[in-house]
Design a binder for these strands. Structure first.
Lengths: 163, 163
DNA sequence: CCTTGACATGTTACGATATAACATATGATA
DNA sequence: TATCATATGTTATATCGTAACATGTCAAGG
């Protein structure tokens, strides 16, 4: 059922509701775990949730500077790293950028679909992908601890635009 | 059958033979396609083939400098990019580094297994992984053009060493 | 033969991404 | 309220990557 929301990024939706729901779950998750969602951290997550895109650390830093936070790269990296470590954001390596996790608290193996037309990043239902990857690794005796699965291509809307 | 060589990186093998075979295939592929495997490019591929590891562009540059090639980053990046574009090497994004392709000329969807113990990188048989990813993308109407599938973990040998 | 054009190599210069190390502040708890 | 862990802020630097232009090489056509 959570998967019914996957790929929502590519579809018109009530984004305020979408982002708000994730934010609420993030808040309660942080509370449960006893980690602190401080103002910068919360704000960084909010900024990530403004769009279904990935944002680079330096772009994020600019936003933070404009809002009165510190001016140096660690300000952004620390907040982003915190979110990643706590499962509230993901790092998209292909883009050297970060995106909000759309399933905080749920066990999930994210696969990112990156549209080169509109830069939207969707978190696809990838349990089957991860299972296949685990199986391939297991056949070689390799044990996976972390994985990243990313794909670049065109989302439904951008395919229509032939670009 | 090609897959019988996958994961070879994690197993004792006649590496000179392994690397030599790939090099030979790379040479004939380049000839077939009419692209030039110039001295730097060949040398870069040889260096990648020395080990089943990924090498950063700046490390590669150091090697090239020591052998009398140019001293500037583009020297390394250009050769590496050439190899990647021609399917003779892969970029491992998690490591910001490059590794030789073990299947030049074959259609294959590489998945990289990166051992955090010994830094070995193996190219796993990942057609099933890619198929699952394609299916997941298709269910959202997304068309994949390029993908990267990478996993970090422990190879069989390093699991034994509990590290 | 020599010119020309495509490709390859080399350089300078810079841009973009990321982290180490240390100083200061804040907040929960003993 | 002293203390300790955590968080924020800073300086400084490391690492990764590319734009732009000058020079060299080589094969094909005049």
């Amino acid at each position: 059922m959570a998967d019914s929301l996957d790929g929502q990024a590519f579809v018109e939706h009530d984004h305020a509701h979408c982002a708000g729901g994730v934010m609420a779950r993030a808040e309660s998750l942080a509370a449960e775990r006893g980690v602190r969602l401080t103002p910068v951290r919360r704000r960084v997550l909010e900024i990530l949730l403004e769009s279904h895109r990935a944002i680079g650390a330096y772009d994020m830093l600019q936003r933070l500077v404009a809002e009165g936070y510190g001016h140096q790269p660690p300000v952004a990296y620390r907040a982003l790293d915190f979110l990643v470590e706590n499962g509230l954001a993901h790092r998209v390596r292909r883009l050297n950028a970060f995106t909000a996790c759309m399933h905080p608290g749920e066990v999930h193996a994210p696969a990112f679909l990156i549209c080169r037309g509109c830069d939207t990043v969707a978190e696809a239902p990838a349990d089957s992908v991860r299972a296949a990857l685990d199986a391939a690794a297991a056949s070689l005796g390799f044990v996976i601890e972390r994985s990243n699965i990313e794909a670049l291509g065109l989302c439904p809307a951008c395919q229509g635009m032939q670009e």
